[in-house]
Design a protein around this nucleic acid. Sequence first.
DNA 1: ACACCAATAT
DNA 2: CATATTGGTG
Length: 289
Amino acid sequence: MGEEAKITDYSRDSERVTEWEIGLPTDGDITPLSQPLIPPELASAFSISPETYRTLLEVNRASNDTISAIRGGSGGSQAFSTVVEPDEEEEEEADRENGSGTESRKLRRLDSAEDADSVMLNNDDSSARALKRPRLVWTPQLHKRFVDVVAHLGIQNAVPKTIMQLMNVEGLTRENVASHLQKYRLYLKRMQGFSDNVPSSTDQLFASTPVLQSLQDSSAGGCGGGSAGRSSHAQIPMPYPQPPPPHMMAMFGMPHHGFNNGGFQQRDWSSGFTYPQAHTHGLTPSGDK
DNA sequence: ACACCAATAT
DNA sequence: CATATTGGTG
């Protein structure tokens, strides 16, 4: 068990075995990771959850994280060298493909002679930036992570930015967290009125949270400085607490429409990432900002 | 620039 | 309904 996986550095192509490279695709032939393998049209036509778009930077960052995780070295892109490994979650997902049989779909081609003068914003893949992100879905797993981080930080430092960073979920924005945090706080407030009973069936997501009141603070208020600052010598590398109960969400209480995913639309990013993307909007007049 | 909150929009 | 977005304040 004491094996040490030696990472040999092949970056220098000294002694390349050229025979091995025969027949291998050249760089030009390989689809870049930054591009989806399945064209959006096809994906939506077949109800395949589209891959998330990744910019080159994101891909690189991910790679770096992975690499640094492997060799334990510091990547450099992350302020915290502690790479949070997202695979400590419980839970599994049953992969059920819906057996909807008679699927007659009409493939329709996109006609070009449609837009008179409307400046249809072209889907410029190259400018895969600032695209309208699909609504974030706070799946139980995601929420758990959120709660864990918040609990760990203590109410003191539980601010959107920090939370976002520690959650280390790709694609998660500060406003996502902010919005959720706002709601979460409301929930907590509302909840403590009742001591601890009969959580309203509303707040489904929150209803199952342990409501930790860890008011522990370790960092005193030296927080004036900007960027650098934490991690001085505090011992909070914290990959995570891996607490309690193996309880799956009890997300009931909602007689009305079915709840979310009966299968997909949300990958378990617990073991890989990606995330939602809602439906096939033909086009969205996405306003720019 | 960020956090917070209420209101509002999707 | 759950999120996103906005506007105002500190």
